[in-house]
Simulated assay, not measured.
Amino acid sequence: MTNKKIWHEQLHCHLGQYFLIDKILYQEKNKYHDIKIFDNVVMGKVMTIDDIVQTTEKDEFIYHEMLSHVPIFSHGLIKDVLIIGGGDGGILREVCKHKNIDNITMVEIDINIVNLCKKYFPDHSNNAYEDPRLELIINDGLNFIKQTDKKFDLIISDSTDPVGPGKNLFISDFYLNCKKKLKKNGIFVAQNGVSFFQTKEIILTYENLKKYFFDANFYQASIPTYYGGTMMFAWGSDNIEFRLNNLKKLKSRIKKSKLSFNYYNPRIHIGSFYLPQYIINALNKS
């Protein structure tokens, strides 16, 4: 038996996961979130928001590489990017690696998340907040997307789960306004939970996305922190060819970028769009 404190995450009433806490680094509840940051011997520093794991030092690279590089290399000519959420800085770090991108706008509702992650998770952003292409805006994502006059080649929604302020980033009005603020042939992507346990949420997203995008779909990655199977990423575009890129083209684009990765590669990219049959069945019925 251990005398260490145990932190539990329980998304479902009969199933959950736990972490042994080696040391609590930060704990506070503000008007937006209940935030905890602690050390774990296996996963390193862990951040939870509203009692749901958001990121860990050990496996964050999988999530951030897949949510960033899949749409960027699929498109091939991204110049203007909008990141909604993502206060830990991981998505920003990956987007900033692409030197051909001209402008990066990031909208985060809680400046406290940004400051905490700069302090406790500095490798997540890796100084990306200092990139001169970045405009950081503290605002609600739905409010911003409704009000802005800017248009983007890529919108990445890196939100919390659909609870609290994160609810606004999973509703039909949000997807509609994202579509309006995309340039021609733009791409929208978003985290969309774990497919095995959150199939209803995936179906709801699909039903909303297909109202506004010719090609509404999903891709996936296995991320240890998000227990229960594969993490799903929503995909919306009017150009179906972006999702159907061949291996040769992806290899050429990646080679030209001179970037290296810890998880992402061209075969992972292509394979991520092949969904399990139970998800295909569920989407076909919706």
Rank of each mutant, 00 (worst) to 15 (best):
F188V: 01
D153W: 05
E28S: 11
I268K: 12
Y18E: 13
L77H: 15
H69V: 07
E57M: 00
I137Y: 00
R133E: 02
C96G: 13
L67R: 00
Q147M: 09
K146L: 08
T105N: 12
S159Y: 01
F261S: 11
I111S: 15
I145Y: 01
N208R: 13
D238N: 12
K255W: 10
H124F: 13
Q54D: 02
F170R: 00
C117S: 04
L92V: 07
D88S: 06
T205S: 07
E207A: 14
I254V: 10
D34F: 06
D110E: 03
T230V: 13
K118E: 05
E201P: 06
M106Y: 06
K181Q: 05
D59W: 02
Y18P: 10
Q17H: 09
L15H: 15
K97T: 08
S157W: 03
I113C: 07
M1F: 13
N127Q: 15
L92R: 02
D50P: 00
L134M: 08
K200T: 10
R93T: 10
N126T: 07
Y129P: 10
V81A: 05
E9D: 06
L204F: 14
T148Y: 04
F214K: 15
Y32H: 08
L275G: 07
Y120W: 03
D123N: 14
Y206I: 02
I109E: 04
S260K: 12
Q54I: 01
K58Q: 14
N246M: 09
N126M: 10
V70L: 07
D153G: 05
R93L: 10
G236F: 00
D123R: 14
A221D: 14
K23G: 13
Y227P: 05
G16I: 03
K151M: 12
M66P: 15
G76M: 02
Q147N: 15
K5T: 13
F38D: 13
G85K: 00
G229L: 00
L15G: 15
N112V: 02
T225E: 14
K79S: 11
R253K: 11
K45Y: 01
K31E: 11
N284H: 03
Y226C: 03
H12G: 13
D149I: 12
C13F: 15
D110Q: 06
T160G: 02
D39P: 06
L259K: 07
G89N: 04
N217L: 12
I280R: 14
N3D: 14
K31M: 08
K167R: 12
K146C: 10
K45N: 13
H75C: 08
D140T: 03
G44M: 00
D153Q: 05
F261I: 11
D34T: 05
I84Y: 02
L250I: 07
F174K: 00
L283P: 01
D158V: 03
M66T: 11
C117I: 01
S252W: 14
T56N: 07
T55C: 09
F61T: 08
I240L: 11
N208P: 09
P276M: 03
L11V: 12
Y63L: 00
T55G: 09
F170G: 01
